[in-house]
Write a protein that binds this DNA or RNA. Structure first.
Lengths: 340, 340
DNA sequence: TTACTCTGTGCATACGTTTGCATGATTATG
DNA sequence: CATAATCATGCAAACGTATGCACAGAGTAA
């Protein structure tokens, strides 16, 4: 209805038009663009030439309708406030592009929204789904999977749900931090949590606590929520308490930066009086003001693995789900004293 | 070809199926979902019921093909390393969603890539384009526009190109900073640039310099590139020079944070010995370690304006292009001495 | 010559919707 | 009671592409 306004040269160029100009059938034009082998060099070039002149590009929508493949991956992300995710987002779109896929982006404020969002995504017949830092209800996971759309959870996992997942080895990361802090002779330890309902937080905390317990140590726990402000406030509480900790492990980097700023505000010297260790290795961790010692997530490898896992399953629906955990590595910087 | 693997319940549910089960025609089902008025309550409810049972949702691809509207907006972004953009990205997707649009995301490493990226975007028949912090060749702009796809540039502008644009009033922002720094009695001023080929940098710099000139002042210019490292290095050079500046205006916040860390490293006290002012007001500007005085871009309003401008033109191709500049406001924090 | 294989191209159909038009049923009007 | 008007629904033709099948012509082999 709205199009009828004297659309002079505004009509879209279709394969029919190109065919007409080139004196071939529409099929032939289609074959040129879908890379069919058996076509004479002559016609191929003629068609390509005319297409270029007319500015023709195959309509991906029409193509998707018939091939039943959109070449679109739905990407659902939440918690974009954490500087870790822009990096991830960028890497995902970049990588998928290289492989010839497009990204339909959805941002969910809270995890609960994801379930409501998904039907919208699916209406666009995306060939696969990547869910970053959010989880689906098992109900929704089931629906999506039996529809034949593979799902990969990034930075989360849900065993038994049927969805594949890629995550950092958070449990082992937690253990590692416990190890190096104890080795360095720290006595009064603390952990600032992330959001309690995330596997990321749970695993890091469990790894940390379990290794502490194994070595007959323990720690104080203070609530954060994966944010700068959360880390700041939690650290303030810890540092003002009577038995002030000499080392704090934070659920992620952004929390750790908050903690460092709390120490700065109170005049607590880092790392002499206090060691702080984070988790992620976001770009700011290297900044002079922080110089944060942290556990680096192997983002590149995680992205690569996610994409691979997903596309494998796009091509073969019958592949089962896989959980993949990649090891993090300790990046030693100035915010923690790690020598005895 | 790949689909033929014993896909039992894996067949997609179409309006035909729903129609069959409901004992109505496919047209009727379609009418139910496109909100046609004249339909008996009885059939509407029966169809909706069956659709719910079967998990039917109209295929957006097929719908797009016939309506010639995809309800998809292409969003091309670059320089995701600047923390300003995740915020922008999040806001855009959020807002567009609320209005019933989807976002196809493309990230361009450098501006030059955008031209190569666009044909891919257009193949998906996006109804409109938002280009964040990147520009198009005038050639490409012309092609896109005459194709009937409206374009809005965000944080850039290109007068005469036919593309609409929304940007902060960078020139006035630059003037404002000059004003307050001179008012406070600063004598030795400096400007750390962003990338020279961006209107953002050019305008901020021009505004700053022109106001200085008007008040018979001038400043030293040091090259940055809109990054933390760029700001850090540039500030280092400035602060080590014989006539060390007593105030630095940085092309954006991330540059300013780098500059502050350079000062921290050299032991230059802020704001007593040095004032630093940025531009953007990214989340980190509030962090205790920086407490950055800066010119805030009215992001919310800019997003809102961009979306409005774009959707207006999606609905009416004949509307001309508009350049919109929204004023920034000075946010006074601790990194600058602004009293004489 | 006949028969047969290849190669390159066209014909026609399908993908899952929307929508103008036609039609039968129902209600209002004279 | 006849006719007109209204309502709810069905029919069929698009949208722009991909692709199985048919087929013409060229080449090869007998």
């Amino acid at each position: 209805m709205p199009q009828q306004k004297s659309s002079n040269s505004l009509r879209r160029i279709t394969s029919h038009e190109v065919a007409l100009r080139a004196g071939v059938s529409q099929s032939t034009v289609s074959r040129v663009f879908s890379g069919d082998e058996r076509l004479s060099e002559a016609t191929r070039e003629r068609v390509l030439g005319i297409a270029r002149d007319l500015g023709y590009k195959p309509n991906a929508i029409a193509r998707s309708l018939i091939t039943r493949r959109t070449k679109i991956i739905g990407l659902v992300a939440s918690y974009m406030t954490n500087p870790f995710f822009p990096v991830v987002l960028q890497a995902f779109t970049q990588r998928l592009h290289e492989l010839g896929w497009r990204v339909l982006l959805f941002t969910a404020g809270t995890s609960e929204d994801v379930d409501e969002l998904l039907p919208e995504v699916l209406a666009y017949q995306v060939d696969g789904l990547i869910i970053v830092t959010a989880s689906l209800s098992s109900q929704m996971t089931r629906e999506v999977l039996q529809r034949g759309t593979p799902v990969v959870l990034f930075n989360r996992y849900a065993p038994g749900s049927g969805a594949s997942a890629v995550s950092c080895a958070n449990y082992e990361g937690g253990r590692l931090v416990a190890e190096v802090l104890l080795d360095a002779g720290h006595k009064r330890l603390a952990y600032i949590t992330g959001r309690a309902d995330t596997s990321t937080n749970v695993d890091r905390q469990r790894g940390f606590l379990e290794r502490l317990a194994e070595r007959k140590s323990h720690c104080k726990i203070e609530l954060g929520n994966f944010t700068y402000a959360g880390g700041f406030d939690a650290a303030l509480r810890l540092l003002k308490s009577k038995k002030r900790p000499d080392a704090i492990f934070c659920a992620n980097d952004i929390t750790a930066l908050g903690a460092l700023d709390a120490a700065r505000k109170l005049g607590v010297r880092v790392p002499d009086e206090l060691s702080v260790i984070g988790f992620d290795d976001i770009p700011m961790a290297q900044w002079t003001a922080y110089d944060l010692t942290t556990v680096r997530q192997p983002v590149e490898e995680m992205i690569e693995a996610s994409v691979e896992l997903l596309l494998e399953r796009v091509n073969n629906i019958n592949l089962g789900s896989v959980l993949k955990f990649l090891p993090g590595t300790l990046v030693r910087r100035g915010s923690a004293r790690l020598q005895p």
